[in-house]
């Protein structure tokens, strides 16, 4: 039982990180109809900025958190304004290709701006090991699970009750009609990119706290994307839960079926789920595939 519990907790912790990044994918898709293939790279850039703040400005957890959020907002807004807005109205395929190009540029920038060495994000929090019986868990892992759950609740409330949230849903449903209703689609898009960057960036910072920073971190995006597909590409909350499911499945498969199955299990589950529900567990039926 302890073996199972240890696998479950570790799976929830890594799954929460996948979930946060997956939510980033879904926020952009829901608002713009676009799959952002640079999501993992944006996550990585935010984490590197957090590390830079911690080593040059202050190692205080609040300063680092605030700095990282501001940096993520700026990153999302700049990408939307400079790279994505000129692509408005262009074919989806071309826009998706732009995000792939952006991913390559952001990935390479790590070596130009920082370096290829792994770095640890030390903010005096997250690395302490808490033991419950023989089960060990780091405080950062507990925090990322709690953060995901809080964000899920906050985002549900945001889309359900706030004016901006409703506007975002309106643009996602039909941007022309939304425009006729006085909603600025470009403003909604900018907000979506900023929000997506922040949510995924939080996942990246937690990953850096629990593991480390390295130029390979962008691969988190590749793990989180299946979580989005599983939860539903247009379902922000579903994507978060999809991340948890992928994390748990991976860990249980790795623990019971062997190391080699760990990376395969999540994708195997997606194939099965998509055969039954092609739009994901929580997704809506009329998703445009790209």
């Amino acid at each position: 039982m302890q073996y199972f519990m240890q696998l479950l907790i570790s799976g929830l912790a890594i799954g929460a990180i996948y979930g946060l990044i997956a939510m980033g994918f879904a926020v952009i898709y829901k608002s713009t109809g676009l799959v952002n293939f640079a999501q993992g790279e944006m996550t990585m850039i935010t984490a590197y900025i957090a590390w830079t703040i911690s080593t040059t400005v202050s190692g205080n957890v609040f300063v680092v958190a605030l700095g990282a959020i501001v940096a993520a907002v700026v990153l999302g807004l700049v990408i939307e304004r400079v790279v994505m807005r000129p692509m408005l109205g262009e074919p989806v395929f071309a826009t998706v290709m732009v995000t792939i190009g952006l991913a390559v540029i952001l990935r390479s920038s790590i070596n130009f701006i920082w370096d290829a060495y792994p770095h640890g994000l030390d903010v005096g929090f997250g690395r302490t090991i808490v033991r419950i019986g023989s089960i060990g868990v780091r405080t950062g892992q507990i925090a990322v699970i709690a953060t995901l759950l809080l964000l899920l609740a906050a985002i549900w409330a945001f889309f359900r009750y706030s004016k901006i949230g409703v506007a975002m849903r309106a643009v996602a449903a039909d941007d022309r009609t939304a425009l006729l209703m006085g909603i600025s689609a470009t403003r909604v898009h900018a907000l979506a990119w900023a929000a997506s960057s922040v949510i995924a960036g939080i996942g990246g910072v937690f990953f850096a706290l629990s593991y480390d920073l390295s130029p390979a971190m962008f691969q988190l995006g590749l793990k989180a994307f299946p979580a989005t597909i599983l939860g539903g590409l247009d379902a922000v909350l579903g994507s978060g839960l999809g991340g948890l499911l992928i994390g748990i499945t991976e860990n249980l498969a790795g623990g019971y079926l062997g190391s080699g199955m760990k990376e395969v299990a999540g994708f195997a589950m997606i194939i099965v789920v998509l055969m039954v529900r092609p739009f994901g567990i929580f997704g809506e039926r009329d998703i445009e595939r790209v």
Partner: peptide, 30 residues
Amino acid sequence: YKKGQQDFSSDMLQLKDSGAEVFLAGGIIG
């Protein structure tokens, strides 16, 4: 493990469960 894997929680739990006393970690850096 698959190249690019970043979370080794289940792998190391298996190692612990096996009772291994000497371990050759065949990773590279991260």
